[in-house]
Structure formats: C-alpha cells, structure tokens
Design a protein around this nucleic acid. Sequence first.
DNA 1: GCCGTTTTCGGCCCGACTGTTTTCAGTCG
Length: 587
Amino acid sequence: MDRDRVVEILQEIGVLLELKGENPFKTRAYASAARTLEGLEEPLETLVKEGRLGTLKGIGDALQQKITELVTTDRLEYYESLKASLPSGLMDLLELQGLGPKKVKALYDKLGVDSIETLEQVCASGKVAELAGFGEKTQAKILESIAFKKQFASQHRLDQALRVAEPILDSLRGHPDVIRCSLAGSARRWKEILGDVDFLASSRNPAAVIDYFVTQPGVLQVLAKGETKASLILEGGIQADLRVVSDKEFPFALAYFTGSKQHNIVMRQRALERGMRLNEYGLFRSEEETRDPALLHPCATEDEIFQALELQFIPPELREDLGEFDAAEKGRIPRLIEWTDLRGSLHNHTHWSDGNESLEEVAAQVHELGCDYWAITDHSRSSVQARGLTPERLRDQIAQVARINQSYADEGSAFRLLTGSEVDILSEGRLDFDDTLLAELDVVVASIHSGFSQNEAEMTHRLIRAAENPFVHMLGHLTGRLLLKRDAYAVNQQAVIDACAATGTWIELNASPQRFDLDWRLWSYAKRKGVRCVINCDAHRAAHVGYLRLGAGLGRKGWLTKDDVINSLPLAQLRQALGKKRSSCPG
DNA sequence: GCCGTTTTCGGCCCGACTGTTTTCAGTCG
C-alpha cells in the first residue's frame, strides 16, 4: 500500500474515533501521525523495512504496528472493524456547518441518522428540535447548511479565493477606523486549496469595522456577527471571517490567525518552555492564563514575537510545522524567491496552438509588463485537441519569432521572445519531435498530455526517458493534476526527480493555479538533490502573466530561493544555462 | 495514542460565538 493511502486511512481512523467519542488526544495522535507521513521525504516502505518508523515524531509503538500492518499486508484489521461499526454516511454529516462529532453521534444514537438524506428528513419532520441540546434554530441551521452544501463547493482554489478576498482587503484598508489590516489563515500561507478566507484588522472601534465588513458588496449571507468577529458567505460560496483586535494585539492575532494550527501549537509550546504564555492577545510573562497588560511582553510586529521566542522570522508560507522551527532556531531560514525576481516565463502558448493571442500581441504585452524574455512553447503535433504544431509550422514560427526579435533589436530593446515547444511525451517516453528539430529551439519543455491511465511504472519510465533526452530542458506539469478536478496520474515523483538530478534536467513549477505542479511539498527534496526549478505561467492568454505572482508564492512555500529558480536569471545567463545540458551530452 | 532536564503517569493550545441553556457544551478556527 502506498503512502498516500496510508495517510488517508490514518486520517479516517482519527475521524471515526471522534465519532465514537474517544479521547480527543488519541484522535489527534492519528491525525498528527498522518501529517508526519505526508511530509515524509523517503519512501514509507524503506522506513518500514528498516524498522525506523518509531523514530518519527508522533509515531509510537501502537501506530508503528498499525502502519507496518497496512504497508506490508495492504489492510488493517483495527481500521476494518472500526469502519464496520459505524455507517459510512456519518463522515458526510461532519462536513455540514455547525455539526461536529458530538452532534452527529447524538443524531445517530437517538434518531438513527446515518446520511444527509435521513438528516434532511428528520429535520423536516421537526424531530431534531426536540432532542436535548438541539432546538429550533439548530434544526433550521442544519437544513440551511444541507442546502448550502448542495449548491456550493467546500474547497476553493487560491486564485478564486484571492479574486474575492483582495477587493475586500483593499476596501477594509480604506475604512477610517481600520489601523492595520491583513489577510490571515491559509490564504496568507498561500495554500493552493482553501476552505475559507480570513481577514484580520486592528481598530479602536471594532463594531464599526464589523458593520462595514458585513455590508461589503458580494455578501450572500451573514453566518455570525459579534463584537469583534464576523463570518460571511461571499459570492461563489466562499466563507470569509473577520476578526478585529486592538492595534497592540494585532501582531499576536496576526501570527495566531495565520496558523497553521500545527505551527501555532509549537509556538505556544516554545512560549511555555520560556515561562511565558502566547495567545492571540499577546505574549505574557506568566505561565498562568492571563491578559494582564502589566505582564505583556510587547511586540510591534510578528518579527518581534519570533525574536522573543528565540527564532528567526518565519515567512507565512513556511508556517506548516514542516521543518521551519529547526531552521529558524539555527538562523537558516533562507531569503525566499520574490515574484519580482522573475524575468519571464519559459512555458507559454499563443493562438498558433491553444493560446489566445498572436506572437506580436504576446510580445508587446509581456514586454510592456517589464519581462526580459518570454518563451513561446506551443503544443506539438500529437496534441491534436490543442491544435499542436507540425514540424513545418514550428519552423515557420521560429522564423517569425526571429523577425519579431529583430524589430525589438532595431528599437534598441533588450527584450526577446525565445523559440520553443511544449513537446508531448508519448507512450514509452518517445518525444513528439525528433532531436534535429528540438536542437533548433531555444527552450524545450516536455510534458505528458495523453495516456493518463498507464500504471506508475510506465508513467515514471516515460518521464525519466524524457529527462534523459539531452535536448529537453525541463519537464512540464509533472503529475498532470488539475486541482479539485482531476487527480494526478500515477507516478513515482521521487524517482523522476532523481533522474532529473542525474541528467541536469529542470522541473517546472507550473504556476497556473489549477495545477501548481510540481507540488510545493516536493521542492525540498528536489532542491536537496540539486534539481533547479522553473516557475512557468503556462500562459494561454495575456492575463496569465499574473500567474508569476501566484507561482512565486508556491515556490516560497517550497522553500525556494532566487538561486533555485532558473527564470530569475537575466537573459544572457539564461542562454548559457539553456546551453549547458546540450553541451555536456556527447553528440 | 504520544511523550518525557516535570520520564512510565498525567498531561496534551485556547478563545469567540451560538444556541440551549440558567452556567455551559459544542463547534470552529
């Protein structure tokens, strides 16, 4: 059984135990073990074989035994019997707003509710309101959230969330009672998928800010509204929460509401170890629970909180409890890539294949935006659905790019288009164009667009063979995933990364927000192997230039620095880098 | 179920909001 499935099962056990009313800390132990495995950088199988599972954080004797059973026998008796003891529909109920394990258990025990359908029925008949601990309002809210779940998704892509959140952020910042205001939560940590959007503001008049927040354009529903906190549903079904604090509290609240949960737990722990207490209101010189201003260790910024806990500043993108504390203690948090470090993108399309604009239009737009270069990598002939280019059309395009570049040179501009192709990796790893043609191009991106159903060994072999081609500069969107839409195809990503390291092939961080592929969780591994990254827009229209900002954020989340990212190089050095793999290979 | 310069038991992060309650449990982040 592979790692991802083991992670899923551990998470599910955690939830099932919650429904059973088990000790919450036991429940958390399963969730935290799942997280540990998720962040694993070597094959789970190796750890199991060598009996090293127990050395991992949060995995003791019991979990070691269960994980070993899963990996070696493909099943776990404990899980099977736990699952059999509860109806599977209960898991769906937990996704409803306002329903947690206790309420779900009560509904199941007292009314036999075992699915959303049966829950809807008992609510409609009024039976829920009669239960102890429930009432008319709870019953109505449950019906509301069932209707909501039917209408809207519970998860949203980063770009979709930012599209609604950033105008509200601007609007709040313009309010006269707002002193400081920021995004918080997973949006500030630049997670690729979000459940909701969090805002934090500081003010002397919280009520005015809350009132302003709930009347923003695009608010569908107000879920909760208190003195210092409100929750809304925005158009598109995204939930947005605002918390308002005093300006003195702002840095503490910002750190707190940015999370992640796991990161915060470690922060609080560090405070306790130093005889202090950290919460969203401050860092207090007391181990007792307090908000006494006399005990406050004042911090004007988040940076000062980290200092007080003897840590280097940890950028929000890294706050996942995936190694940032170890690095920050040693002063080894690197200066992460900024999107303004990027000089252009090396994987983009035009209307020659499935893009939207002409070569001239693309050149003019990205030049205007300040890029130094832009590679044109339209699809190759096998991608018929994307109007892939034949060798003849590609040679025609090369000539036209040369003509456009000449006109920039004549104007005295240093901007250049680069010729290229996003060449299909066919089955068995053959490429769609022969090496002679690839050798004529400035930039070659090799990607898979067909045969998604091959098994892991076949897919991995295809990608490794493509990496071994001396004319392939980089692999594009390694797993083919479309977030919230299509799973990654089966591929051993570590093995492909190893092959890229061995052949000097780069890997793309596809900055299209529906891909973000290679995943941020794998860049540390790639980086350690010496593989360099290219943050590419995969632009199909002019507006996609904006993906550079999103992609750079995901690069930051993967701990990448300017030196790790090829397209931070100026043009002359980029050309050298592009020539390197070809010149190091014989023939 | 995990963990230990407080190590084999007794902790495990914590506060706001809501609704159902007359003092608090459940949910959420």
